[in-house]
Design a protein around this nucleic acid. Structure first.
Lengths: 309, 309
DNA sequence: CTGCTGACTCGTACACCGTACGAGCCGCCC
DNA sequence: GGGCGGCTCGTACGGTGTACGAGTCAGCAG
C-alpha cells in the first residue's frame, strides 16, 4: 500500500516528468494541496518534503516551491542520500539502549522510550525515521563505545582474537546487539567500520600468502559470524532467566525428567549420559572454544604453525 | 500477573494443604465456583483441570471432584509432565510451517493459521498450548522430515560434516527454524535427538583420544552453533528480498554510494577496496567455508591429520 | 427420567504494538 | 499583513497473543 502523501507526490512527479510543470514553475503550495486533495497541512508538507529529497524541486522562502533546473530531464529518481543529522537524537538512542539492555528488544517500544524521556510518542519520529533506523543507530552506538585497543596486534591470529573478543564483550554488555546486526546487507555504521577494517587488514599481506579479496572476506566474516552466532543466544538466555526467575541450570534440572522420559538410554546412550551429569558449558566457554578451533583451522588454511595454548 | 483461574486454584490448593479439605472430600464443583466467585464455567473448569494435573484431586464421574489420597502430605507441587497428545494437531503444525516458510516468523499469527485452516482462532488452542509450544513443535517437525542418512560415516570428520549439512539444508528449506532453535535451554524435540546423538557419538571413542564429556559437548555444540549461527541470517535475507523486490546484490549496489560516502579510502583502504569490487560471498559459501575451517581446527585439536579437500 | 457433573467450542475483549494522518501553531520573507 | 513551509503531537487504524465468558453436550447417580 502506498500512503496518501506518496500518492500525491507521485502525481506531481508525473506532471514534472511530462513537462506540464517546467523548471522554475511553481508546484502547488501546501495550502493548495490541502484544498485540492482534502488532506492536512502535515501531509502536504510531507509531499513537498519528498519532492525536495528527490531533488526535483527547490524551496524559495516566502515564494513557494519551484521545479528544479534539469528535473524534467531525469528519467528516474536519483534517490540521494537521506541527509542525516548526526548529533540529534542521541538521547533517544541512549534511552532506547537502556530499555533494550534491561528488557530486551521485545520490550523496546516507541511508547516506552517516549515515556522514559517524558515526551510524546510521536515526537520520537523527529529524531528517528522508524524503529528500524533506531535499531541501526543503537548498533552503531555499541560500536562507538567499544573501540578496538591501540595498537592492534600485527599477527593475524592475535588481531582476529582481539577483534572477536571486543565484539563478544560488546554483545555481553548489550545482548540485543547481535540480533540487530545483519550479515547479508551491509548496514551503514560509521563506528563499525574501524572494526571491519581491522579484521580485513588482519588477513591482508600475510607473509608469502597473497589472498584474494573473496578469501579474505570469508576469513573476516566467519570470525564476525562466530561472535554474532553465539551472541544471538545471549538475549533469550537472559530474558528467560529473568522471566522465570530460574537460571538456565535450574531450568534444565526442571526439564530433565521430561527429557529423560523421551531419551531411551538404549537408542540414545550419549544423550542419556549427558543428561545424567552436570555439563560445564556456557555461552562464554562456547565462544572461546569455537574461536580457538576456528583460528586453529585458519592456521592450517594459511599454512601457519598452529599456536600453542 | 496471575490469572483468575490460577488464583482460584491456589485458594483451593491452600485449603487442601492446610487440611481443611481432607483426602476423599469433595472440592467445590464447577457450578459452585461459578456461583461463589462470579466466574464462567470454563474458568471453573480450568481450575479443576489445573488441580487434576497437579495430582491433588481426582474426578469421580457424576459425583464430583475429590481430594486425592496423600495430597495433604505433599509440601510442594509434584509438577508432573504435561501429558502430551502426540498425533493431535499435526495439521496445525503443518499449516503453521507453510505460513512461516513463505512469510517468515513475523507473518505467523494465530489468526492467520486459523484462517488458513478454516477454523476459529481460539480453536487452535485445543491443539497447542501457546504460540511458543507451536514453534517448538514446528522445529521438531523439521527434524522429523530431515533424517540423517544411513549408515552414518564413522570417521568423526565425515560424520560431523554430514550432521552439519543435514541441518543446514533443513534451515534452507525452513528459514525460520534456526531462529526457533535454542542453544541455552534444551528443548524437548523427540525427532531432534537422533541428530544430537549422532553428533555426540562422532567425538566419542576416537582412537587413542578419550575425551571428557564437557569437551565432546563443546565439539558437538560448536558444530550445531555454526549451522544455526549462519542459519539465522537466512530468513531476514529472504524476507528483505521479497519485501523490497531487490536481491541482496541489487540492494548492496543501491547502498554502496552511501557506504562509500562514509568510508574514507585513506582511513579504510580495505573497506574501500571491498566496496569497489564484486564480492562472491553468500550464506552458503560462508557456511561451507566456516565448516571447513572449524573442522580443520578440530583436526588439530584432536591430533588428527588435516584432511585434503 | 431428572438433576447434576465436568468437558468442550468458540466469540469477545484486553492490553499492547508501529506509525500515518490531521489539527494547529510558529517563524520567516515578500 | 499575508502567504509560505516546517514543526509538534494527539488520535486512530489495523494488527498481535491469549484470558475469559456464554453456552452446549455427554455421562452417571438417584
Amino acid at each position: 500500500m502506498t500512503t496518501t502523501s506518496e500518492r500525491i507526490a507521485d502525481e506531481i512527479r508525473a506532471r514534472i516528468r511530462s513537462g506540464a510543470l517546467a523548471a522554475g514553475d511553481l508546484v502547488p503550495s501546501t495550502r493548495r494541496i490541502v484544498a485540492e486533495h482534502g488532506v492536512a497541512m502535515a501531509t502536504a508538507s510531507r509531499v513537498l518534503g519528498a519532492l525536495r529529497r528527490d531533488g526535483l524541486v527547490e524551496v524559495r522562502r516566502g515564494v513557494g516551491t519551484v521545479v528544479a533546473a534539469g528535473a524534467n530531464a531525469g528519467t528516474s529518481r536519483p534517490a540521494g542520500s537521506p541527509a542525516r543529522r548526526l548529533p540529534t537524537g542521541g538521547d533517544v538512542v541512549r534511552a532506547a539502549m537502556a530499555v533494550a539492555d534491561t528488557e530486551g528488544l521485545g520490550g523496546l517500544s516507541m511508547r516506552r522510550i517516549a515515556t522514559d524521556l517524558g515526551i510524546p510518542t510521536m515526537s520520537l519520529y523527529r529524531h528517528v525515521r522508524s524503529r528500524d533506523e533506531l535499531l541501526t543507530r543503537m548498533l552503531d552506538a555499541v560500536y562507538a563505545e567499544s573501540p578496538l585497543p591501540e595498537p592492534l596486534p600485527r599477527h593475524w591470529r592475535a588481531r582476529a582474537e582481539t577483534c572477536a573478543r571486543t565484539m563478544w564483550s560488546a554483545f555481553q554488555r548489550h545482548p540485543w546487539a547481535a540480533h540487530v546486526m545483519s550479515m547479508t546487507r551491509p548496514q551503514v555504521l560509521p563506528h563499525g567500520m574501524a572494526h571491519t577494517e581491522a579484521l580485513l587488514a588482519a588477513f591482508d599481506a600475510i607473509p608469502g600468502r597473497p589472498l584474494d579479496l573473496d578469501t579474505r572476506m570469508h576469513l573476516a566474516v566467519s570470525v564476525v559470524q562466530l561472535a554474532r552466532g553465539v551472541g544471538v543466544s545471549i538475549e533469550p538466555a537472559l530474558l528467560a532467566q529473568q522471566d522465570s526467575g530460574l537460571t538456565d541450570e535450574e531450568w534444565t534440572d526442571r526439564a530433565l525428567p521430561d527429557l529423560r522420559a523421551v531419551a531411551d538410554p538404549r537408542r540414545f546412550p550419549q544423550i542419556s549420559a549427558a543428561t545424567s551429569t552436570d555439563i560445564d558449558l556456557t555461552l562464554d566457554s562456547l565462544f572461546e572454544f569455537g574461536l580457538a578451533r576456528l583460528l586453529d583451522g585458519y592456521a592450517v588454511f594459511l599454512g601457519d604453525a598452529p599456536s600453542a595454548p
